[in-house]
C-alpha cells in the first residue's frame, strides 16, 4: 500500500500528480485553479493562474503558470509527459471570484476573476479539451483538491461549505 501524498501548489505555480496522490491549492480568490486530467491513466495537472494574458507582463522572464494563455498549454504538456493521452484529456476549473466589490481598485483589475475564467476556457477550447465541471465566480475564496483516481474536484470555502464537482 502506498502512502497518499497531497501535493500542494502555491499562487502562480503548477504541478502534475498520479494516483493515489492528490493535488491541491489554497485560497483561490480572483485566481483560477485549472485541472487537466486523464482519468484512464489517473494523472492530473493543476495550475494556480493569476492573470489572463502574458501580454500583461512588463518584460522579463515569463512564469508560464501565472498567465491563463500560457498555463493551459504548459499544463497539457506536463500531463502528457506524465502519461496522459491527448485525446482523453478533460478539464475542471474553480475560482475567478470578485473578492472586493468596489471600483476604487481600478477598472482594469476589477473584473480580473471573470477575465481569468474566460481566458482559461478560450485556451481549453483551442486545444479541444472539454470542461466537464466548474465552480467559478461569486465573492468567495476557495480551496480545491483534485483526485486523479476518481476525477473528483473538492471545493471548500471560508464558511466551511464543501462541495464536489
Amino acid at each position: 500500500m502506498s502512502i497518499v501524498q497531497a501535493v500542494k501548489i502555491g499562487i502562480a505555480e503548477m504541478e502534475v500528480v498520479k494516483a493515489p496522490n492528490v493535488i491541491r491549492t489554497c485560497g483561490l480568490g480572483s485566481c483560477v485553479g485549472v485541472v487537466i486530467y486523464d482519468i484512464g491513466k489517473a494523472v492530473a495537472g493543476m495550475a494556480h493562474v493569476m492573470l489572463p494574458h502574458s501580454s500583461m507582463a512588463r518584460g522579463g522572464d515569463i512564469n508560464v503558470a501565472k498567465y491563463a494563455d500560457t498555463a493551459v498549454e504548459a499544463l497539457i504538456r506536463l500531463v502528457v509527459a506524465a502519461g496522459g493521452r491527448k485525446g482523453m484529456l478533460r478539464a475542471k476549473l474553480a475560482g475567478g471570484a470578485q473578492m472586493f466589490s468596489f471600483s476604487a481598485a481600478g477598472g482594469d483589475m476589477m473584473r480580473i476573476g471573470a477575465r481569468n475564467v474566460e481566458e482559461v476556457k478560450k485556451q481549453l477550447e483551442r486545444f479541444h479539451i472539454p470542461v466537464v465541471a466548474e465552480d467559478v465566480g461569486g465573492h468567495n475564496g476557495r480551496t480545491i483538491e483534485f483526485h486523479p483516481q476518481t476525477g473528483v474536484l473538492s471545493i471548500r470555502t471560508a464558511s466551511q461549505e464543501l462541495k464536489e464537482i
Binding site: 499562487i11 489554497c26 485560497g27 483561490l28 480568490g29 480572483s30 485566481c31 493569476m50 471570484a97 473578492m99 472586493f100 481598485a105 483589475m109 480580473i112 465573492h139 468567495n140 475564496g141 476557495r142 480551496t143 471560508a158
Partner: peptide
C-alpha cells in the same frame, strides 16, 4: 472582505 488570506491578498 472576510475570507481566506490567499484569496484577499492575491488581489
Amino acid at each position: 472582505a472576510i475570507d481566506m488570506l490567499g484569496a484577499v491578498l492575491s488581489f
